[in-house]
Each structure stands twice: as structure tokens, then as C-alpha cells.
Amino acid sequence: MNTKINFDKNLIPFLECKDFTVSGEVYQVQRNLDFDMLVTTPVPKNLGDYYKSEDYISHTDSKKTVFDKVYQGVKNITLKRKLKLINSFKTKEKNILDVGAGTGDFLKVCKNNSWNVFGTEPNLEARNIAQKKGVILLEDLSEFKTQKFDVITLWHVLEHVENLEEYITTLHTLLAEKGRLIIAVPNYKSYDAKYYKEFWAAFDVPRHLWHFSQKSILKLFSTVHLKVDKTLPMKFDAYYVSLLSEKYKTGKMNPIKSFYRGFVSNRKAKTTKEYSSLIYVLKKQ
């Protein structure tokens, strides 16, 4: 990037959201007109403390509740789809870097399918769980200096990154010349986001600092000459997010109503292409 981006410029109020997972605090979600994305303000100084919850399931392999079991079951299906996607790329070395790898399940699947796996995860407990699965994760990207990767994946990670501009530049640097960068993020322009509004679970303030549209991803990554090659839906997310959103809104899961809202969201997205979450496949221009 040649010039530093001021993400606080041209912000207008969008809505107020509550942290339903940890603190109960209320945060402002404002719209950045330049990048057509939303910004959570303020960012807590002790942001790491907001991940310390048993409800933050990506840092555990919990199967205590029905919700946990559904989550883990769906995760197994999506892992196969993710593997199929990366196997569709013609790569020379088969080196993959998974950023924010959680408990290492995706990299374990990749490793079992002849990929050379590397990963980062800031949460110590999650890293320890991954290590027991034979997946060694480093704490952050700064530990990769000169390596290049054929595929870099961020599955619902970019929305958590504090130094967004710097992070995007680093990802570009780590990507091999004909490599692919895969970014999966929630889409605040989906039907379920518009329906649930401040109760939409994928706002997940303050852990989610940024809330992207298709235009934001296109514009942000064009600054480092990465082009969106393909955009794919994550259809399960509409149901999962609606289930949580319904709980936040009414105090109950309401699985039938949640399933209906997820179904409607996916049906509408067939026309609008605005699915609850989207996968972006990017490559160097």
C-alpha cells in the first residue's frame, strides 16, 4: 500500500450492538463510506480478555450441549468442502498456511492429504489442543519471515485483525507468485443480517472489529494488487448465525424459526448473491 488508509475517516452511525458473549457492553458499529464496510468502536485495550469464554467455541472442541454437537457436526462437513477447494488449485510445493487455525482441525485434514501445513493461533489453549492432534501452530505471522505459501487461508479471521492494513500487506508478502489467498468472512449485507439487525450474531462485538461487504474485500485487497478470482457461499452459516441471533433477540434458540430464517436468507441470496458468509478466493494480479 502506497498511502496509509484512515479507516476512521468518513464514518457515519450504523447501529449499536451488545456483546452477548462476555461483557454485556454496548459498542458503536459505524459505516466507512470509502470502503463500504462497518467498523466497531471503540476497540477495548484488553481485547484478548473478550475471547475468554466457554461459549467461544472455535477455541475448544466442546461437545457439551446440543448446540456444540451441531457445530462440530457441521464443521466436519465444511472441512471436506474446504479441502476440496484447496485441492482444486494446481500448486508446486503444496505449502499451506492457515491463519487463526483454532484447534487445528483444518490443518490436520490438509496434513492427512499430503499438504505441508503451517499455521498461527494466538490462543494458547487452542494451540495446545492442536498440538495433541499433531499440528504445531505458531503465535502470529511475524514468526514467518522468508517463507512463501501456495495457499493462505483465513477462515473467519480477518474480521478479528486489529492492524488491518498492515495485515493485508503481510499476507501479500507471504503469498507465492501463483498462490491463492482464501478469505472467509461474514457479510453484513445478507438477509439474516438485515433481519436481525443489532441482534445479528455475526456482528459479535467487540471481537469482530470489521464487517465486510463484497465491495470492501474487492477494494481493500486491490491496494496490494490481489484480485478476487472467485466468490463462494457458506450456506451453513445462515442457519448457525440465525440460531444464535434468535437466542440473542428472544432469549431462546427457537430452532424452527432460526432454520426458516436461514432458509430464507439462502433462498434470497440465490438472486442477490449476498449470502450470510462468503469465501473469497484471491490471486496476485
Rank of each mutant, 00 (worst) to 15 (best):
K4I: 12
N6G: 14
F7D: 10
K9D: 14
N10F: 12
L11Q: 03
I12H: 07
P13V: 03
E16S: 11
C17W: 02
K18T: 15
F20H: 09
V22D: 04
G24N: 04
E25K: 12
Y27L: 02
Q28I: 05
Q28T: 12
R31A: 14
D36Y: 01
L38H: 05
V39Y: 14
N46L: 09
G48K: 13
S53C: 07
S53L: 07
S53Q: 04
I57G: 02
S58F: 08
T60R: 03
S62P: 01
K64G: 05
V70M: 14
Y71I: 03
K75Q: 12
T78W: 14
E93H: 01
I96K: 00
A101V: 11
A101G: 13
G104E: 06
N113Q: 03
N113D: 09
V117N: 01
F118N: 02
T120Q: 00
E121N: 02
E121R: 05
N123H: 09
K132W: 03
K132I: 04
I136S: 15
L137A: 01
L141I: 02
E143A: 10
T146S: 13
D150H: 00
T153A: 08
W155E: 06
E159M: 05
E166S: 14
Y167D: 10
I168E: 06
I168A: 08
I168K: 05
T170D: 13
L174I: 06
L174S: 07
L175K: 02
A176E: 15
A176Y: 05
K178V: 09
G179W: 05
A184R: 07
N187H: 05
Y188D: 07
S190R: 05
D192F: 07
A193Q: 06
K194G: 08
K194Y: 11
Y195A: 11
Y195L: 13
F199T: 08
D204T: 07
V205R: 03
R207Y: 13
H208A: 11
S213Q: 09
L220Q: 08
V224N: 04
H225F: 12
K227I: 04
D229G: 06
L232V: 02
P233E: 00
M234V: 06
F236G: 10
D237S: 00
D237T: 02
A238C: 08
A238N: 03
Y240C: 05
S242A: 15
L243S: 10
E246M: 15
Y248T: 10
T250H: 10
T250R: 10
N254S: 14
P255T: 02
F259L: 12
K270V: 04
K273M: 11
S277G: 10
V281N: 00
L282G: 07
Q285I: 15
